[in-house]
Each structure stands twice: as C-alpha cells, then as structure tokens.
Computed example of a mutant assay.
Amino acid sequence: MQLVIALILALIVDSDIKGKTFFRVAYYIPTVTSTVAVSVMFMFIFKTDGLLNKFLKIFGIPPYNWFSDVRLALPSIMGMAIWSSVGLYMIIFLAGLQDIPHSLYEAAWIDGANKWQQFWYVTLPLLRPTFFFNLVVSLIGTFQVFDQAYVVSGGNGGPLNATMTVVLYLYRTGFRDFKMGYACAIAFILFAIIFVLTLLQKKLFGEETQYQ
C-alpha cells in the first residue's frame, strides 16, 4: 500500500503543478521526524476523545479507542507507519521518474498514446528496478519495526499481541524474560531473512540494470 501511495505522490510532484517544491518537502518531512514523536502524536489523534473520533462523530460514527481494539490496533499502526515512511519511497520513485528520457514520452505521444497508455507502457516498465528496490527496502523495514509498536503498546505488544512485531518479540524475550538463547535464535532467523532479501534484491536489481 505504501509503495502505491508513494508512486502516486511521486507522479504528482513530478508533474507541472504549482508549488511542487512545497509538496515534495511536505511529503518528505514525516520521514525525518522521530518515530517516537510520531507515535505519541498518533496516540493523541487515535485516542477515544482524540481528533479522529471527533471528526468521525460529525458523521454519526461512534468513538473507538483504536490502539486498544484487537481488530483496529495493527491497522492503526500500519497507517501510522505508512504516513511516516511514504516520503522516503516517494523520493526514490521521483528519482526514477526523472531518469526516464522525455523523448520516450514524445515518441509515445506521436504514436497516439494517451496519458494512461504512456504510464502503463513507458513509465511502469522503466520503473521496474526502482519499484523492486523500494519493495525490498520496505520489506526489510517492515521486519525491523520496533519503535511504533513499543510506544503504542507500552512494550507488551498488546492488546492480545495484536501489535507484536518480530523485533519487539525479540526485545521482550531477551530483556524481559531473560531468555537470551531464544532471543539470539530469533535474531539469527531475522538476520537470515533480511540477508536473503538483500541478496535477492542485489541479484535482480543488477540484472535489470545490466538489461537496460
């Protein structure tokens, strides 16, 4: 989801709209903001009497305690993580878009391709290496999520382990339950997964670059 949003934002700020520099900065600012500060801000927004529930009340929707509901806790953290990281992937997509020669779009336009066809047959194929790079980096980042889940759940992964992540589970196992051997095994498996993803990214990204 965050890659789709990042691509849409990159297309917007790469177009000839007014104030696109402002939008680039505005979309990127959450990326350089402290994850702890972002988590505290979203806890304020998502609490029972928070801004989100006050907005939903206008439409007659009852209030929810988003981070305390088993069904809503994980999607709420996902929304927070997407908001705080989408700017990074937007910048990478923007670099990929600006690397596409404009002459290809002119040739497609001369051949009668509309905007959608130019995007589908010119932009997307040439963005494959960039998209795959973002995909692997985002997957690695997802495996490494810790700060948001720790702050929101108070370090216990609640409610009912709904916000438990791999790194938070590793932390609890090693530094709360003092099962250091088990925690080391978790860390090793996490390292192996990230290592395989990195090798896969390097192999396929290298092949794409060589092909181009």
Rank of each mutant, 00 (worst) to 15 (best):
T48R: 13
T48Q: 12
T48H: 13
D49P: 00
L52N: 07
N53E: 12
N53T: 10
K54A: 11
F55W: 09
I58E: 07
I61R: 08
P62M: 05
P62W: 06
P63F: 02
Y64S: 12
Y64V: 14
N65R: 06
N65C: 04
N65W: 06
W66E: 14
W66V: 01
F67N: 07
A73C: 05
A73N: 09
A73D: 04
L74V: 08
L74N: 13
P75W: 01
I77E: 02
M78N: 06
G79S: 01
W83M: 07
S84V: 01
S84F: 03
S84Q: 13
S84H: 15
S85D: 11
S85P: 01
V86R: 05
L88F: 13
L88G: 02
Y89H: 15
Y89M: 05
I91V: 15
F93C: 05
F93H: 14
G96Q: 03
G96M: 07
L97C: 08
Q98T: 15
Q98I: 11
I100F: 06
P101Y: 01
H102A: 11
L104F: 09
A107M: 07
A107E: 14
I110E: 08
K115H: 15
Q117D: 10
Q117I: 01
Q117V: 02
F119D: 12
W120C: 05
W120G: 03
Y121H: 14
T123P: 05
T123H: 03
L124F: 11
P125I: 13
L126P: 12
R128K: 14
R128V: 13
P129Q: 01
P129D: 04
T130R: 07
N134Y: 03
V136A: 06
V137S: 13
S138M: 09
L139H: 04
I140Q: 03
G141Q: 11
F143C: 06
F146I: 03
A149H: 14
A149M: 12
Y150K: 14
Y150T: 03
V152P: 01
V152W: 02
G154S: 05
N156E: 07
N156D: 15
N156T: 12
